[in-house]
Amino acid sequence: MDKEKAITVKNLVKKFGNFIANDNLTFDVYKGEIFGFLGANGAGKTTTLKILCGLSKPTSGQINVAGFNVYTETNKIKNNIGYMSQKFSLYEDLTVYENIRFYGGIYGLKLKDIRKRADELIQKLGLTNVRNELLSSIPLGWKQKLAFSVAIFHHPKIVFLDEPTGGVDPVTRREFWDMIYDAASEGITIIVTTHYMDEAEYCNRVCIMVDGRIEAIDTPAQLIKTYNAANMNDVFIQLARKAKQQ
């Protein structure tokens, strides 16, 4: 494939003492793709994500994110990515607008741009009535959508979502994925970790991690075919079981 690459990873290793969290990972992510990391807790998804965001330094390997080297150009990477953490990444005691303004500000956007984009965003999300309400007073699903919108507020090239839909009802989850598709269609590359198998099927490609290694990497349809499975859940169970027997 000669599509433009957003991320290239070659022989990534991350050790914590004797524990190998990422064991020789090699993969590419293409621009505008929705790329899913799938794996049990402790399989190394979050570690990989943190290295790609510049939150953690790899032990070895060649890694490029948005065209920049993770060892030497962390700051350039940070300006070009968005990040949404497992937990809530917004402040409950700030209003909807204040949250947007704060995050816009730390990415160095001009106040004039922040105001304009914030107004558009608030209208798009249907939050006009609660614009100046504290975040703690609005429902969880709205917060989740707002958190994602804030993560892409500064128009990053890549956005990282670390288990973004934990604790959200299926309807909101579906709406949330609609927003992800919208962002991807605008050319933003999306890296998402999850352990919901139905979500895995929404991704363009998934990478299944077991015990720090990449066990399989392909489109969901192809994976189901290769492993002769009924759905992604089957694929995952087959791979996870194989790993434990080794």
């Binding site: 939150l55 940070k78 990040y83 949404m84 953490s85 937990k87 990444s89 995050y103 730390i106």
Partner: peptide, 14 residues
């Protein structure tokens, strides 16, 4: 740190 916002701050250009 508990809220998870610290990670977001550290992943930002701040």
């Amino acid at each position: 740190k508990e809220l998870g916002t610290m990670e977001v701050l550290l992943a930002s250009p701040l």
